[in-house]
Amino acid sequence: MNTILKTKKITPIISVRRVTKNFDGVRAVDDLSIEIEKGKITGIIGPNGSGKTTLINLLTGMIPFDTGSVFVNGSKELFKIKAYDISVFGSTRTFQDVRLFEQMTVLDNILVVLTERNVASALFEKHKKFHNQKAKEVLEKMGLWGKKNELAVNLSYGQRKLLEIARVLATKSDVYFLDEPFAGLFPEMVKLISEIIKELKQQGKTVILIEHDMSLIRELCDYVFVMESGNLLAEGEPKEVLGDKKVIEAYLGE
């Protein structure tokens, strides 16, 4: 196979070691090993059904992996990940099929990720003012402050996407998994979100981005993994990977 595999020395924030995931006999992720560099924007591309979202779901504890192990942000070797542990590892994510707390207000959608995690402390919350300030800051950035008392279910598609981004920005994480954050958005919203992703990088954060728009991948990503049928087809800097013949054949079908 004519894959481009790099052996460059990097400082990984996430290491995936020989991870496999089967769905009823279908290999969604097949013996995959990758390392994601700290403080960079890493793109994951590939045709539909190639295992990109599954990979992110595995890394964020949404679904268990069958075999293999993972290191996240200085953690010990993890053989399984619980969803509620990923914030302990400094990770957060958005969802391809925007998942908001629909019958809650826009403001509550943000506040709920800011407040105390422990049951007893959540009952007697001490930092209400601070949380409100933080929520205001991220909602203003997304232009949603004026909608703070509306139910999330009543927002337009684009606003829902922005609210989901606002929600992860409120968390103060080290690693941001963004699953197709640009899909279906107007150009000005695309611009806003790309600026935010660049800002995250400037703050030393790590961004893992699933995206279909190759010009955005070129513009934003430092490094790209190309997946196909649960395997790694290629990896490298965007300009070399996107010019690779195999990648073009597999992915773009041109």
Binding site: G61, M62, Y84, T92, L100, V113, E116, L123, E125
Partner: peptide
């Protein structure tokens, strides 16, 4: 309370609120 807000989030999408660090 904040506790009550988490309850509503569990009702809306339990898996999503877990991702934000809540053992539901």
């Amino acid at each position: 309370s904040s506790f009550g807000r988490v309850l509503k989030a569990i009702r809306e999408d339990e898996k999503a609120i877990q991702v934000f660090g809540y053992n539901t």
